[in-house]
Structure formats: C-alpha cells, structure tokens
Design a protein around this nucleic acid. Sequence first.
DNA 1: TCATAATCGAGACGGTACGTCATGTCTTCGC
DNA 2: GCGAAGACATGACGTACCGTCTCGATTATGA
Lengths: 204, 204, 204, 204
Amino acid sequence: MPTNQERRAETPAAAPRRRGRKRSEETRLAILTAALALLSEVGYAGLTIEGIAARAGCGKQTIYRWWPTKGDVLLDALALKAETHVTIADHGSYAADLRAFLADSFRLGRLPQVTEVLRAMVAQALADPEFAGRFRETFLATRREALSTVVLRARERGDLPPRPAPGTVLDLVFGVLWYRVLITGGPLDEDLVGELLAALTSGD
Amino acid sequence: MPTNQERRAETPAAAPRRRGRKRSEETRLAILTAALALLSEVGYAGLTIEGIAARAGCGKQTIYRWWPTKGDVLLDALALKAETHVTIADHGSYAADLRAFLADSFRLGRLPQVTEVLRAMVAQALADPEFAGRFRETFLATRREALSTVVLRARERGDLPPRPAPGTVLDLVFGVLWYRVLITGGPLDEDLVGELLAALTSGD
Amino acid sequence: MPTNQERRAETPAAAPRRRGRKRSEETRLAILTAALALLSEVGYAGLTIEGIAARAGCGKQTIYRWWPTKGDVLLDALALKAETHVTIADHGSYAADLRAFLADSFRLGRLPQVTEVLRAMVAQALADPEFAGRFRETFLATRREALSTVVLRARERGDLPPRPAPGTVLDLVFGVLWYRVLITGGPLDEDLVGELLAALTSGD
Amino acid sequence: MPTNQERRAETPAAAPRRRGRKRSEETRLAILTAALALLSEVGYAGLTIEGIAARAGCGKQTIYRWWPTKGDVLLDALALKAETHVTIADHGSYAADLRAFLADSFRLGRLPQVTEVLRAMVAQALADPEFAGRFRETFLATRREALSTVVLRARERGDLPPRPAPGTVLDLVFGVLWYRVLITGGPLDEDLVGELLAALTSGD
DNA sequence: TCATAATCGAGACGGTACGTCATGTCTTCGC
DNA sequence: GCGAAGACATGACGTACCGTCTCGATTATGA
C-alpha cells in the first residue's frame, strides 16, 4: 500500500537533497503509534491533532507539516500496524480463490485495531471529500484491485458465472464487509464466507 | 418510521398531563427545516447546532432540550422530508417482491437530499456509539423489517432459494446499497437491481 | 424601614380592593427565606432568581412579579431577618448618644447574616443605578436620618463641636463602617467606638 | 503599584528562558484599552470578556490565559491609565503632609475614569473573594502604605495626636473616600479635606 | 352562582455570556 | 531548516440564567 507522506517532494526524480535537519523517523513513528493508541482509547471523535502531539511528545506543527488531516495520519498508521496483504494466489478455481480472498480479508476485519481504523477513515471520508479521494485511491483501490485480479482470472479460466458482472461482485463482497464493519457490527465469520460463495457462484 | 422526539415521555400510556408551556410545533419544524437546508449548503462536518439555531431563529437550548446531537435532529428531519416507505405488497413471487422493494429503495437512494442525510447519520453513528444505537433501532430496524417481510413471505410460499440465508440476504442487499452511497458513490440503477436479483434468486 | 414590595399599588389611599386571587404571603416568605439561605451558601454572585425560585418551590414569574431584581428581594429579606433599629434615645450628651448609636450599629454589623446582605446590596447598587437609588432612599436614608437626629439634637443642646460639620460626621461614621464591612473586613468593635468618639468629640 | 500579570513566572530570579512564541505586548495593550473603553460605555455589569475580546480584536482565550477575571483586567488597566502616585514627601508637619496626601488622592478620585474602575473593582471583590484578596494585596495595600508612611513619620516627629490610633486614621480617611465614591457619590473636595484635617489633628 | 380576574407552579421560549476545547497559523529558541 | 514549545485569532461546544411567554389550576371578588 502506498503511503501519502511525500507531500514535500516537488519532483519525484530530481532534488533528492534537501537542506536543513532531516525528518525525524523517530518522531514519525511516535506520531503514528500515538494516533493508534488514542484511537483505541477515545475513539475517532475524541481523537485530536493536539492530543496526538501531546502523546507523541511533539509539536502540533510537526504533524501539520506532514499530514493534512488526522485521517491521513491513520491511513499511514494502518500500513504500520497491520499486514494488510491478502492472498491472490491461484488456487485452481474461482470458488477456491474467492474463499481464500474472503478468509484473508475477514481475518483482518476481525481485528478490532483494524476495524477501528477503518471506521475512522470512513468517518473522515464522509466529512472531507478531499480525503475521500485519497482514501479511495490509496486504500480502497488496492483492495478492489486484489479481488479484481481473482475475478478476472476466473473469467479467463471460463469459470465465472455470467452474473453478477465482475464490477458487481466487488460491490457485493465489499458491500457486506463494510456494512457489517460500519453499521451492524455483525460478525465476519466462516458462515458469511459460505453464504457469499453460494450467492456468487451458484449461477454457473 | 418512529421518531425519537419523545424524550420526556416517561410512560407512553400515563402522564397525559404536563404542566407548563407546550412545545412549539412551529419552532420544531423550523429547526428540522434549517438542519436540512444547512446540511445541503455546508455538509455534515460544517453543520453546527449553533448554525441550526441561528437559521431557525431559535435559541440553542431549544435544540439541546429535544435532541441530544445534530444527528438526531437529522433523524427526525428525514421523516419530515422524504416519504420513506417502500413497497412490501405481495406481487406473487419472491423475484417480483424483491424487484419492487429494490426499485423503491433505490428511488429514494437516488435523491441527493436523502443520501446526504444518510451519509450524515452514518458519520454521526461512527463518532457516537449511543447515537449508533438509536440509529439502528429507529431507522435501520424499520428498513430491515420491511425486507425481512418480503423474504419470510417467500419462505412460506416455498419460493426462497436455500441460500443465502434470510439474514444474509438483508446484509447483501443493504450492503451494496450503503457501500455505493457511503463509499464509491456508484449508481443505484436498474442494472444493479438485475444483478442483485440474479445473485439472490439463482440458487432455486 | 419601609419595604419596596408595593409595586402594584397605584394610589396608596384608593383602590384597596383588587379582584382575583390574593398574593400568597406564604410564598412571599418562602422566597425571602430562600434568598437569605442561598446568599449564605453560594454568595451574591452565585445567587440567581432561578435558584431562589427552585429553593422556594415557586415559579420564576412569581418573583419577577413582585421584585425587579434579586437585590430588591434581599432588601425586603433584610427587614424580615434582622431587627434593624438603632437607639436614638436621648442619653443627655452628644458623646453618650453617639456611643449608644455606634454600639447598636456595630452590633448589627457583626452579624454575618447582616453583613452578607449589606455587601450583596452594595454589589447590586454598583451594577444597577436604579437599584442604587432605591437602596439609598429606603435603606441608607433611614440610617442617615437616625444619626442625623443624634447630631442635630447635640447642636441644639450646644454640645456639638464646630467641626466636623454634621454632614461630615455622618460620612465619617458610615465611611468607616462600610469600609470595614465592604473592603477590609476589619472588626466593628469597642476599640473603634472609642476611636470614633475621640475623633468626633475632641474639637469641643 | 505592582501589576498582577506575571501569572506564569514561577520564580522571579530563575526561568529566564522560556520557549515558544512570546506574549504579544500589542495585544496586551489592546485588551487593557478595550476594557477601559467598554467600562465607560456599558458599565461594569455590561462588561464582558467576550466584549473585550471583540473590541480588542483578540480571542477570548488570550484574555483567559493571562487574567482570571474581568476585574483583574481592570486592575492592570488602572496602572496603565492613571498615574496613581500620591505625594508622601515631607512637608514639615503632620497637617501639611496629610493635606498634601488628601489633595492628591482626591484629585485622582475626581476623575470619572478612575472612579469607574474603582467601583468596578469593588463590585468584583464583593462577588469574588479570591479577587478580593488580590485587590487588597496589590492595589489597596500600596495606598494604605503611602498614608501609613505619612502617619508614622508624624509619630516619630512627635506631631501625631494620641488618638485616633494610626490604624484608625487609615480607616477614617479611606472610609470617607470609598463611602463617597461607592455609595453616596458625594464630592471629594477642599471642604472634605478641611473637615478631615480638623477631625484628625484636633486632639493634639 | 357564576363569570371575570389575578395569582400560582411549571416550564418552554429567544437570547447572551460563560469558560473550555481544538483548530490551523505564527513566532521563538535550540539543535 | 527541523523540531519542541507555546501564543495567537477563530469559532463551536454545551451550560447556566436571563426575562418573557404560555399553560392549566387555584382562589377571590362582584354582577
């Protein structure tokens, strides 16, 4: 997952040398860690730049210099915290690939530390269209791409039911996932994997 | 849809006698109208109790007296604004019932005034667990109940595919719906109706 | 001491008959008592009409109907609480009369319940010129009149030193008294009586 | 007159190094000026922190950061506005010293801008015991000390009447002064100087 | 005896200011 | 020039009272 911390890089190729004191990696980690800790303790609404700075032992300006919003801090923090990769290896059939993808995704979605951040980022995205764009393009896009790979491979293999269309498959899968995470709090368990597989593969 | 404005009513049956000046219905409507207008103009993050009071020409206390958060104001405002009923009449088959339900729901979900409020209420729910409870029990519960009626009727009719299970059907339908409304902004169109019908009725 | 509770009496002689429910004496006493109690508990700054009404078990309007400010409530309450008369009987000499007057005044001024109210009324007078007028004309005037009687009697008797002038005597006596009550919190004791007598009678 | 603006200074000698942005002297003066202007326009009761901030063009927090109450703002503003020194030079006799002190004090006490602030500060002191302490220790103490110097010098010189005692002299002088300023609004004129001199020096 | 009228407790109303909190910007000092 | 500390203008928070205004329920005349 790409991070969004390179706000100062004017040109990606040139200008690798910048004057003055270098960015403190130590401080950067302190900020991300503090953000995650505070998110667990006080929730997204109670999370403040001021609080993160105090907890991280840094000045507010240091945060504002590198991240535009608290949501962006969390976006980076997520990459730090959880190994967010999911399996897209070829298991021989659409059903097997899909099962593996779902199992991986749900495993992550059962970690409270992960769902907390996910919920926080949606909250930020709902309040801030610019962040919503960054969120979609960095975080969401990689997830959709992964599942997309699985679906397209099934199509090539000739093993994909005619309906639902590939785009809809993505929306159905991520739909239930986010719906349970954001709204009902329902479980992401083996049952749901079975139900989804049934719904998405029965038309073959 | 039940509203949540009866904060003072201890017992629904008893206590028909309340002393003191009565609540001003005029002011109540002014507040709900102002909240909706401001939501469109400045978005949920920019919506403030102070702003609503100013626009409605009332004191802040009058809002705090009757609604605990700005989300609750919107919850009531939604009931005022849109006719939120969906069809659950019997059309003879599961597919027909489902198609009617989806058409109705999507029609509402295409109104920007409605999706604005829906997004705002989820934002509030993510930031405020107590509101989340009220939101689920008042707004979401009635939606789920409607679709539940359709599904259970199909089961009695013997017309419901063995999978997905009734509960999962609800999660799949509302999952895509909320996913598009909250996250991708994708369309709630006739195509999606078809895709959903295919996924939910193919297993028979 | 005249009270200021007759706000409705248009003409003192005529119109003794008014229709409708009579003023509740019970409530009036409850209000005055509550005001004094609260003054002791929370101080003048913390004293509110709302608090008095709650403590007295009456509506706010009932207070506003009869008294224009909380200071006026206290003005009436003072008459209820303390016997505020001072001796102006003739003791044969200016010095004796003055000593008796001072002893009486200081005795009252040593009661915390009395000084609390005095301080409160000055606070109100400083914030509210209209009340200041009522305060001067009702409460202060009677005090000054009493001492004035003593001084003028001495002049007739030929027993008053040429200086300070009668008006200044009043200002000196009440000056120290209020200064200690309002500002330094110094004692109103026998010593002060002696000092004042020395200063005011030495010129004879 | 010492000011009370050094709330942060833990030790007067140490801690010369403070990090972060320095206090804005410009803003400080704007606040004091605004407070005085508003006091004249709307009186002490109508004076609000919010109003001062608006007039001074600063945030409320900036006022709360440096002064605990509006009275403390005025306490500092007084030092800014009026040259509050009084003469305590040796004029050769108690009577001459006293006359000079009174003339100086009364001259200040005839300036409406000064009496306004004095009345305001007493109002605050009556409502707020903690402020009363600060008021006594900073403002009042220096006034009393000045007159005390005059009186004690007279005692050394052997020129002080046996009564009233030095402490009582202070109370008598400041008593009349405050009584006229706070309560009767009587004049602080040459007549009063004469009367006071007569009362305080006749016992020799 | 019954309408009229004033009072009472209660409590909602439009306001204003409170004192606090967090925002994002800025200035200052030390590394 | 980065980073900490922290002052600054801004603006919303949620609360407390203000003084006014209905309400329904009590009393009291006086016609």
